[in-house]
């Protein structure tokens, strides 16, 4: 089953990087409609294949083995965050479409896509390390402050800021609803 997982994980990586590139391109220049549709399709297929990859991953390694290893815990955390992030991008792209690329919204869209690309990169790196392969990214991450062999977890103050930021976002969402 681990072989199937190794095979499947390449699909969301490629599809999301493709979708992200198309979205970034659309932020800076006009793109034909077929390319926009291709981007949306790649985004959707990326989510579907990511879910399949996650499912195969659950069968490839015993959950107790994944949860007992810092690298396993980090991989699981980033796989969940990455899938959730790109699912969010899919929903936003699908529901908002042109709004995401309209003036005034482009910075937000660019940040969303770039964060998604970083998440995919980290998740892929962790997966590679679990398979015994390193492409030098762990050293870069270490220099940037993320030690891949230490379980990712936040101190209370950071969790509080995260919660406060999340509540602020929900408040913005609620404000827009009231205005609408």
């Amino acid at each position: 089953m681990s072989g199937l997982h190794h095979m499947l994980v390449h699909f969301p990586i490629v599809l999301w990087l493709l979708a992200g590139s198309i979205m970034l391109l659309r932020l800076v220049r006009h793109t034909p409609e077929w390319l926009q549709m291709a981007g949306l399709l790649a985004l959707a297929l990326g989510v579907v294949t990511a879910l399949a990859a996650m499912l195969s991953g659950l069968f490839a390694w015993a959950p107790e083995a994944v949860l007992a290893s810092p690298l396993g815990r980090n991989k699981l955390a980033f796989a969940l965050w990455t899938t959730a992030w790109w699912s969010m991008l899919l929903i936003l792209h699908w529901r908002l479409s042109a709004i995401l690329f309209a003036p005034g919204h482009r910075l937000l869209t660019a940040v969303l896509v770039l964060v998604g690309i970083v998440l995919v990169t980290i998740t892929g790196t962790l997966g590679g390390l679990l398979g015994g392969v390193s492409a030098g990214i762990p050293e870069l991450l270490r220099q940037a402050g993320f030690e891949v062999y230490t379980t990712i977890r936040l101190p209370w103050w950071a969790l509080l800021v995260l919660v406060a930021s999340g509540l602020g976002l929900l408040r913005l969402a609620g404000g827009e609803r009231r205005q609408a």
Binding site: W81, L92, A98, L112, S165, G166, L169, A173, A180
Partner: peptide, 21 residues
């Protein structure tokens, strides 16, 4: 909390649709 934060980002992003470009 990371996942809930992503949900909050999604909710805020979707609210832009109600506001329009």
């Amino acid at each position: 909390l990371g996942l809930l934060f992503i949900v909050a980002v999604a909710a805020a992003g979707l609210s832009l649709g109600r506001r329009g470009p």
